[in-house]
Structure formats: C-alpha cells, structure tokens
C-alpha cells in the first residue's frame, strides 16, 4: 500500500508545470525515502531529477517500493481539478494499475477523487557521477528566468561565462548580440535575493535557450536557483522545493567537435 498526503496540492501542480514541457510521461519511484523521478527528454539532451522527501509529506506510507508510470498531460488534467488550497492524497495498492488522487478543501467542505490509469514505461536510468564543479552560482530564480527570456529573443544559444568578477550571460543572432553581467552581491542577510558565486576555476559553456527556458518553468517553486558548471560536463540547474525536496535539471552543453 502506498499513501502520501501533501498539505499543498498547489506545490505538486507547480512541480508538474515545471516538468511537463520536457517529458510526456515519467515513472515516479516510491520508496520509504520518498518519491523520486529521473527522466530524459526525447532527444536525450536534458534530464529531470525530482526528489520529494517522505518527511516533507503530512502523511507518508510506502510498504513496498513502487514505480508508477504516468502520462504527464493526464496527470495535469487531474491536478487542474484541485483547488489552490486543497490538500492532496496520492494512493495506490501494491501492484495496482491505477493511482488515486484525493483533493480535500481546507474545511473538508469539498472532497473529490480521481483515479488514473498507470503506464508501464521502460525508462533508461542514467548513472550520474559526483562532480567537482568549477563554478557554483546562486541567484534569484526570477532574475535567471528574466535573463534567459530576454536573451532568447536574439539567439538560439546562451554562453554562460563565470569568473571571480561575476557571471556573464551572452547571446548572438541575426540582429546582433546581447550580454547580461551579474556581479556578486553583498546582501548576505537576504540570501535568496543575492548573487553568490563560488568559483574554483573560470568556465565558459554554451547552452540551448529552448531548454533553459523550459527549466525556468520551475521558477514558482523557489526564490533561488543554483547553476553548477564545469568544463565539458552538463550544466545542473537546481531549484530547492522548501521543506519537500528539490528539482534538478541537467543540460548537455553545445561543444565544438
């Protein structure tokens, strides 16, 4: 028996909004530790890694490890039926081919449930080695979304260059070029409004605007985003989900052969 009750269905809705551009379907792996998801987009350029810790749920029970394959468009339809203040309880029997979502309004004045068919997905799991990153940049998530949106107007790629002076986002296209430089801020008492750069070595890598834009769909989950860069290694874009876990995206760089 699997049962997980989350105080805010809106949080799960935000997670879904943050991954459904990249993935049509995905397997949610449920264990004692919580709910995990790892999946690549169809072109194998990016990977989504979601971790929701069991102790972030109001109630969590997982008697046996369970993998639930779901169509994310269908799952979005289910969550569209929840109110913004509803709690959600996710339930499945062992070896079941369906999952049930129950939405409860705060004062129990409305309770709805939706049963959805599960899918058998044959998904490839990637082994991701621990990496010592050359540069780790923390910045406000809204600022990152803004920069990616602005620069995407001009080109298909963004070069992220990091030195100890700051981080520079650059693009070029048919109409010209664009550059945004962010210096490290000293606003340490307001960490989620700061730009914090931890640089071991300078790095400069090129990434697709389209994918970066998809990642910024996670902006409502967290005030801050962390970019981890290292030469010849995929970029990691990480959003912490307060009290619940994290959502990480990996993106393969564009590299001259």
């Amino acid at each position: 028996m699997f049962e997980a009750r989350l105080a805010s269905s809106a949080t799960f809705k935000k997670v879904l909004d943050a991954i459904k551009d990249l993935l049509n379907e995905a397997s949610f792996d449920c264990s004692d530790a919580g709910i995990q998801l790892q999946a690549m987009d169809n072109s194998h350029v990016s990977l989504v890694s979601l971790n929701l810790k069991s102790d972030g749920f109001e109630k969590y029970r997982c008697d046996r490890n369970l993998t639930m394959g779901m169509n994310l468009a269908s799952l979005s339809k289910v969550f569209r039926c929840s109110g913004s203040d509803d709690t959600v309880t996710i339930k499945a029997q062992d070896d079941a081919d369906t999952v049930t979502f129950m939405f409860e309004a705060k004062k129990q004045e409305k309770i709805s449930d939706y049963e959805m068919k599960l899918m058998n997905l044959d998904q490839e799991h990637l082994g991701i080695p621990e990496t010592e990153f050359s540069c780790i940049i923390k910045l406000p998530s809204g600022e990152f979304a803004r920069i990616v949106r602005d620069l995407s107007q001009f080109g298909e790629s963004i070069v992220i260059s990091c030195t100890k002076e700051g981080v520079k986002f650059s693009t070029q296209g048919d109409i010209g070029t664009g550059n945004v430089k962010l210096a490290q801020t000293n606003n340490f008492d307001k960490e989620d409004q700061s730009v914090i750069i931890d640089m071991q070595e300078p790095v400069s890598l090129t990434f697709s605007c389209e994918y970066l834009n998809s990642f910024t769909k996670a902006t409502p989950l967290s005030n801050q985003v962390t970019l981890s860069l290292c030469d010849n290694v995929p970029l990691v874009v990480e959003y912490q989900i307060p009290d619940l876990g994290h959502l990480k995206y990996y993106l393969a760089p564009k590299i001259e052969e």
Partner: peptide
C-alpha cells in the same frame, strides 16, 4: 553556434 551534444556522451545508462 557549436553543435548540441547529448547526455549520453557524459553519463552511462545503468
């Protein structure tokens, strides 16, 4: 723009 790589060039399927 340089060509796009895939994650399979960096990580192994397990």
């Amino acid at each position: 723009t340089p060509p796009q790589t895939t994650l399979l060039a960096f990580f192994e399927i397990c």
